[in-house]
Amino acid sequence: MNDTPQHNDLPLADYDHIPNGTLPSRIAGLDQKGLDQLLEYERAHGNRLPVLQILESRLEALRGGAEPSGTTVPTTPEVSQSSSGSPVSPATSGPPVNPPSQGDPTNPSQPR
Score class of each variant (00 low, 15 high):
70 G>Y: 04
110 Q>H: 08
83 S>H: 08
42 E>I: 06
4 T>N: 10
11 P>Q: 10
79 V>E: 13
34 G>L: 11
107 N>M: 04
81 Q>F: 06
32 Q>F: 08
89 S>E: 10
62 L>Y: 08
56 E>R: 04
106 T>M: 02
43 R>C: 00
35 L>E: 04
51 V>D: 01
15 Y>W: 11
43 R>H: 02
88 V>H: 03
3 D>L: 11
71 T>I: 11
93 S>R: 13
42 E>R: 07
85 G>P: 03
110 Q>G: 05
55 L>A: 04
45 H>W: 04
35 L>M: 12
42 E>Y: 06
73 V>R: 12
95 P>D: 01
89 S>W: 02
35 L>K: 07
62 L>R: 13
18 I>M: 04
64 G>E: 14
60 E>A: 14
33 K>V: 15
28 A>G: 09
69 S>F: 02
20 N>A: 09
58 R>L: 03
103 G>R: 09
1 M>C: 12
55 L>S: 03
42 E>Q: 09
93 S>F: 00
58 R>A: 07
100 P>W: 00
110 Q>F: 08
29 G>N: 06
99 P>G: 08
98 N>R: 08
104 D>G: 05
23 L>I: 10
76 T>L: 14
86 S>G: 03
47 N>H: 06
76 T>Q: 13
16 D>W: 02
32 Q>T: 15
98 N>D: 03
2 N>F: 08
68 P>I: 12
69 S>H: 04
